[in-house]
C-alpha cells in the first residue's frame, strides 16, 4: 500500500510564509509519546500563536485537563500507560468539553469509527501532512459550539478576540501577542480580580521559561500601551493577589 500523505505544495506550505489566519489563540494540550511528533506539533501550533502543553502519559493528560481549561486537545491513541480511546472516554466522563483531535497510526476504518464514537471530534491518521493537521485544528477551533464571546467592550475600548485586535476610540491598538492574550483574559474578567497564577497559565505553557517578573513585565508594558492609546481603563495590581481591569475611575462597565 502506498499512502499519499503530502503533496509538494503540502511540504512547501510548512513554511511560516504560508500560514493561514486563524480565529483565535487557543491553549492546546498535546498527548503524544513520540518525541519527534510532539515537538513538531508544538512547533507548528505555537507558530500559529497558540499556547501548547505536551504530555506523554494518559495519567498526566488527565491531571493537566483538570488543572487547565484547554480549548483543544490532540490525543495519540497509543500511549505508554494506556489506550488513548480510554483516555478520551474518561475525559468525556469527567465532562471535559474541549474538542479532541485523535492522532493515530491505526488506519483501519473500524479504528477511525471507534475513535469518533469514543468521544473524539476528529481523527487524523499518521503519517499526516502538516498543512492538513493545521487545517483540522483550525476547523475544530472554528466550530460554533466552541466559540466564546468575541468582542468585549470596556469603557472606550473593544477587545476583538477574532481579529486579535484591541480598538480604542475606533483606532486599532497594535499589541504583541502576549500582551493581547493578557488583555483578552483581563477583559473577559473585567471588574473581577484575576489571580496571577491564572494569568501565568493563560500566557505560558509548561515548557516556557517563566521568571518571577515575567507577568509583572507584561502587565507593565500593557498598562503603558493602554495609557498611551488613551484607553479609559485602569489595570490595577493587588500585590500577592492578582490583577483587575476596570473602566476608568473603577466604575463597572
Amino acid at each position: 500500500m502506498t499512502l499519499d500523505y503530502g503533496h509538494a505544495e503540502g511540504f512547501a506550505a510548512a513554511s511560516r510564509e504560508h500560514l493561514e489566519p486563524i480565529a483565535a489563540q487557543a491553549r492546546i494540550l498535546v498527548v503524544e509519546d513520540d518525541d519527534n511528533i510532539a515537538a513538531l506539533l508544538g512547533r507548528e501550533l505555537r507558530g500559529l500563536g497558540h499556547t501548547v502543553d505536551t504530555v506523554r502519559y494518559a495519567e498526566d493528560a488527565l491531571f493537566a485537563a483538570r488543572a487547565n481549561d484547554y480549548t483543544l486537545m490532540i490525543v495519540d491513541l497509543g500511549l505508554p500507560d494506556g489506550d488513548g480511546l480510554d483516555l478520551v472516554r474518561e475525559m468525556r466522563r469527567r465532562t471535559v468539553e474541549a474538542p479532541i483531535l485523535m492522532l493515530t497510526a491505526r488506519r483501519r476504518v473500524e479504528d477511525r469509527v471507534m475513535g469518533l464514537t469514543s468521544g473524539a471530534d476528529d481523527y487524523l491518521v499518521k503519517p499526516f501532512a502538516v498543512p492538513e493537521m493545521r487545517a483540522r485544528v483550525t476547523a475544530l477551533l472554528r466550530r460554533p459550539s466552541r466559540l466564546r464571546g468575541h468582542r468585549i467592550a470596556i469603557a472606550n475600548m473593544v477587545v476583538d478576540a477574532d481579529a486579535l485586535e484591541a480598538i480604542v476610540d475606533g483606532v486599532s491598538l497594535a499589541l504583541p501577542r502576549k500582551q493581547f492574550q493578557l488583555l483578552e483574559l483581563l477583559a473577559r474578567r473585567k471588574n473581577h480580580m484575576t489571580p496571577k497564577r491564572m494569568v501565568e497559565e493563560a500566557l505560558y505553557g509548561f515548557d516556557d521559561d517563566v521568571t518571577a517578573n515575567s507577568i509583572e513585565a507584561q502587565i507593565s508594558k500593557l498598562r503603558r500601551a493602554l495609557k498611551a492609546a488613551g484607553a479609559g481603563v485602569a489595570l490595577e495590581t493587588r500585590r500577592g493577589i492578582g490583577y483587575r481591569l476596570v473602566g476608568a475611575g473603577g466604575a463597572p462597565n
Binding site: M1, T2, Y5, N36, L40, R107, K126
Partner: peptide
Amino acid sequence: VHGLAGAAGTFGYAEVGNIAIELDD
C-alpha cells in the same frame, strides 16, 4: 517499525514510511 510507520512520512521520508507501514500492517 510502528513508530516509523507513523512518523517517517510526516517528516517527509516517504519511502521509509511506506515500507514501514507495509511491515506494520
